[in-house]
Design a protein around this nucleic acid. Structure first.
Lengths: 337, 337
DNA sequence: TACTGGCACTCCTTGCTTCCGAGTGCCAAG
DNA sequence: CTTGGCACTCGGAAGCAAGGAGTGCCAGTA
């Protein structure tokens, strides 16, 4: 159906359209890319490509523009991920190395990715559920008030205030703290509920109410924070793009945590970069945007996802390269800290 | 120079222009507001107002539009802050009461303010420098690694990893922790450096290197976090505004912490709402926007600022009311937690 | 002195028409 | 299967006239 030359034509159309933002006609096509045939031949090929739904023309007497299906074919079969230059790699590395805590790592990552791709970057905080407990701390802050601090192996720190039913002694707090840590050290967060199930039995009768309230807050924290935090940056890069739908829709979508979650989507097949193009997107307001996303994590443990969002008319090879590179480096940084 | 009627005309022009977004002419003015005079008279008044620089016309044969100077006069002398309806107040209260930690308070506040004003909301995290230390915690996370957690009376928690020069025992950590807390409890963050100055002398000789590294990180934290964290929400509300400059400039400004800092500006004279209109704004990219901001804090202690940013063509009385109300409620919430 | 009705004038907006050219589809010939 | 040629389509730019909103000014009136 589609011979090699037709594929080459499609590739050329995508490349030209991405760089010029104008419908591309048969004549400019033969001039720019040495396809070795005349424009009339190209026209025939284009007619076929259009019939098959890979390209379309905005109106008669205009050049052709790739459809979502066309971009899809381009990404799947006609392009290869473009690796970053070594200068870019070094820049990424030094920039991310300067970070001093998890917030900072994520913040720098999202800004970096936005700048690198000149698009909107989206980064999900490392998943709690796949982390393990490194330490639990109980800090008295007032007579009937404790602060629970939960530290994970990915450097994430969660804190919550606990109202306790009874006055507390330093001693009983110390006891409870020790118990919690022996129970939970190295424990995956998903396993916390079972790990602490029998804990109330291990404490003295008078400490039991306090232990119960601590546990309930602890479990609550795990549940509530399960919905992961997501940040984005680079919204300004959307300003000079003309979306078929309103810019407002896109900006609104970006501020909805839930939508962003769906946006990054399921964790992909192994460590490849996944691309979702235009209408492949689950969300209404993002039908004219594409998302390039990837997992990141330490070793072969996937922690979360990151990616960029831009117009479907996007430099896919370059964007995919940047996303892949940043995902790798973030993994390294997290492993090292 | 400007008699009462001229002021009334200016007020009417501002109100009409804000609600219709179209230059307002003398005829529609006499129809909408019962000024008791004819359109010709209004025209004379408008000519004076224009000569004085309060209004301008985009072109001959168009109506008048307020200038920045006109808005300024309107805000200063022609309008009163519009209080929220009691339903709105209740909604704010219940919405903010649901928050469970500082991040959540700030997050909810910024979203609430954006929704309430239909503009971009900006909220600064409570200042560290004006807070006091509630607790310092040291948590061993590895052989040569400590986690320093600093808890303030405003509920803010800062954590940093410390690489220690020597192996640590539970005992020496406990000792150091106790020392720090006695030194610093209730201490204003600005006074921390002096409060810990003589601390190294109080520990045993073998603990001194560790103590030194802890202190250096502690002080570093205070300095670095001095540049306050700021968040914003509601960027989507900018989408349907047509700025004289590019939307891109505004979005870029919003993502720059430094610019946002300047944007909210100095803390105002007592607890009033401050307004900065158009070119009064320090930043290049924000010459066509106005900022309505206010302090918030607990009691008479100012912690930080919050506000909204929108086009100069903005409903000032309503926006000022919303900003003031939200600032008050946030103060209450923070005081209560 | 202050206000008012009337009137000429300006100039933006809208709709219409025309013209141009890029790009296409098709066909007959190589 | 490819190619040159040609008629055709249609959007965009340019030009033009009509319409209308709004103004400034002036002379008359309370």
């Amino acid at each position: 159906m589609l011979d090699d030359r037709k594929l080459a034509v499609l590739r050329a159309i995508v490349e030209d359209y991405v760089s010029t933002n104008e419908p591309v006609g048969s004549k400019s096509l033969v001039e720019g890319h040495n396809l070795g045939v005349s424009s009339a031949t190209i026209r025939n090929d284009m007619a076929v490509l259009e019939q098959e739904g890979y390209i379309t023309q905005p109106h008669t007497s205009a050049g052709r523009v790739p459809t979502d299906k066309g971009y899809r074919l381009f990404v799947d079969r006609l392009s290869t991920i473009k690796p970053l230059s070594s200068a870019e790699r070094r820049a990424i590395e030094t920039f991310l190395n300067g970070a001093y805590d998890l917030d900072d790592v994520v913040g720098r990552t999202v800004r970096l990715l936005a700048q690198l791709t000149r698009q909107v970057a989206v980064v999900q905080y490392p998943s709690l559920t796949r982390s393990t407990v490194r330490h639990v701390e109980l800090v008295p802050v007032a007579a009937h008030r404790l602060l629970l601090v939960l530290i994970t192996n990915t450097g994430r720190v969660e804190q919550r205030v606990i109202e306790t039913p009874a006055q507390l002694t330093e001693e009983s707090i110390g006891h409870l703290r020790a118990l919690l840590n022996t129970c939970l050290d190295g424990c995956g967060l998903g396993e916390v509920p079972t790990a602490v199930a029998d804990l109330p039995e291990k404490v003295g009768a008078d400490e039991r109410p306090v232990a119960a309230s601590v546990l309930s807050v602890l479990l609550e924290t795990l549940v509530e924070k399960h919905e992961e935090k997501i940040v984005f940056a680079g919204a300004a890069n959307l300003a000079h793009v003309d979306f078929s739908q309103s810019l407002r829709d896109v900006l609104e979508a970006l501020e909805e945590q839930v939508v962003l979650m769906r946006l990054l989507g399921e964790t992909g097949d192994s460590s490849t970069v996944t691309v979702r193009i235009g209408t492949e997107n689950p969300d209404e307001g993002l039908r004219s945007t594409s998302v390039v996303a990837a997992d990141y994590g330490v070793g072969d443990l996937t922690l979360a996802r990151l990616g960029v969002l831009g117009p479907t008319r996007m430099d896919y090879p370059g964007t995919m390269g940047a996303v892949r590179a940043v995902a790798r480096y973030v993994g390294q940084i997290l492993a090292g800290s």
